[in-house]
């Protein structure tokens, strides 16, 4: 994998490289370098299969990570391209013209993370969440527990006790 990274590095400015396994590596790529790198990988390095496109919310670092995972089916190796986006203005270029399936991923990312991909077909359509008006739910600051507590009623009559506190009361009844 390092070989590929070194080779790419002569052509593109690349960020951090992670050698995860013999057949899997991750490379951080600049936002505006993504397309040329994708084209190069697809057309010259045999990475013709877009395995997945997804996002990771690094809320503490105030950025989203987009992961474009590509596979070279002939050599059976995978490379993940990491693109870091400003969390305040999460917009990314669409790649549906390179892989038509990307449109589905981009539609989902728009809905679940609030990352926009202008010009991606149907990107503004509802994917899963019809009539959702809360924060994009896969963002880290969307609290599922809180949402569920507010939206649904808990079953009545459930009470639990802390073993430490309960035992303490039995052992040392005089203590307050």
């Amino acid at each position: 994998m390092r070989e590929l990274y070194e080779k790419l590095k002569t052509r593109f400015p690349l960020g951090e490289f992670t050698d995860q396994r013999d057949n899997l590596g991750f490379i951080t790529v600049d936002k505006d370098q993504l397309r040329p790198v994708l084209y190069h990988l697809r057309d010259h390095e045999g990475f013709s299969h877009l395995v997945l496109l997804t996002a990771v919310d690094w809320i503490e670092e105030d950025r989203f990570q987009l992961t474009y995972l590509l596979s070279n089916r002939t050599r059976s190796v995978d490379v993940g391209l990491r693109v870091m986006l400003d969390r305040g203005e999460p917009v990314m270029e669409t790649i549906h013209d390179i892989w038509p399936t990307a449109a589905t991923y981009q539609c989902e990312l728009r809905e679940m993370f609030g990352i926009d991909f202008p010009d991606s077909p149907g990107v503004m359509d509802d994917f899963i969440l019809e009539g959702w008006d809360d924060l994009p739910p896969y963002r880290r600051d969307f609290d599922t527990k809180k949402y569920s507590d507010e939206t649904y009623a808990h079953r009545e009559g459930r009470v639990t006790h802390d073993p430490a506190e309960y035992m303490k009361k039995q052992l040392y009844p005089d203590e307050v």
């Binding site: 395995v51 997945l52 997804t54 996002a55 990771v56 919310d57 992961t67 995972l69 038509p100 399936t101 449109a103 589905t104 991923y105």
Partner: peptide, 15 residues
């Protein structure tokens, strides 16, 4: 931090 499930139907059944 994040788990993403890649099912084959994601592309087969959609696009």
């Amino acid at each position: 931090r994040r788990v993403n499930v890649r099912g084959p139907s994601y592309t087969h059944a959609m696009s």
